[in-house]
């Protein structure tokens, strides 16, 4: 993802309002987390339970198959890990230091 261009104060809407709804895809909202979610393609069955349960639409899916994680928006809440039915789990939280 390209680096966001920060706006000057004169360019901001009144009262800190956000006028263009659904603009979080343009903003890196998950880059602060010291942990990271990783996906293991080899064990994944593409059941999409993670995709259904993800509160931040951060499981990337194409043609009904998981293709990866949107780490710029994933908050590493761990819900997908919890619901993943495969053994071993196909989703794992690792420390950023390890990554």
């Amino acid at each position: 993802m390209k680096k966001e261009k920060l706006k000057k104060w004169q360019e901001l809407p009144i009262g800190g309002l956000i006028l263009d709804m659904g603009n979080s895809s343009e903003t890196q909202t998950g880059d602060w987390n010291p942990n990271r979610l990783v996906w293991n393609e080899d064990t994944c069955t593409h059941c999409l339970l993670c995709w259904i349960n993800c509160p931040d639409a951060s499981i990337k899916v194409e043609d009904s198959k998981v293709i990866g994680i949107d780490n710029y928006h994933c908050k590493v809440c761990g819900i997908c890990v919890e619901v993943c039915p495969t053994k071993p789990k196909s989703l794992e939280i690792i420390s950023e230091e390890v990554a």
Binding site: L6, K7, K8, W9, Q10, L12, I14, G15, G16
Partner: peptide, 10 residues
Amino acid sequence: DYYMEHKRSQ
């Protein structure tokens, strides 16, 4: 990154 810009705008 934005709080101060918003306070200036206020």
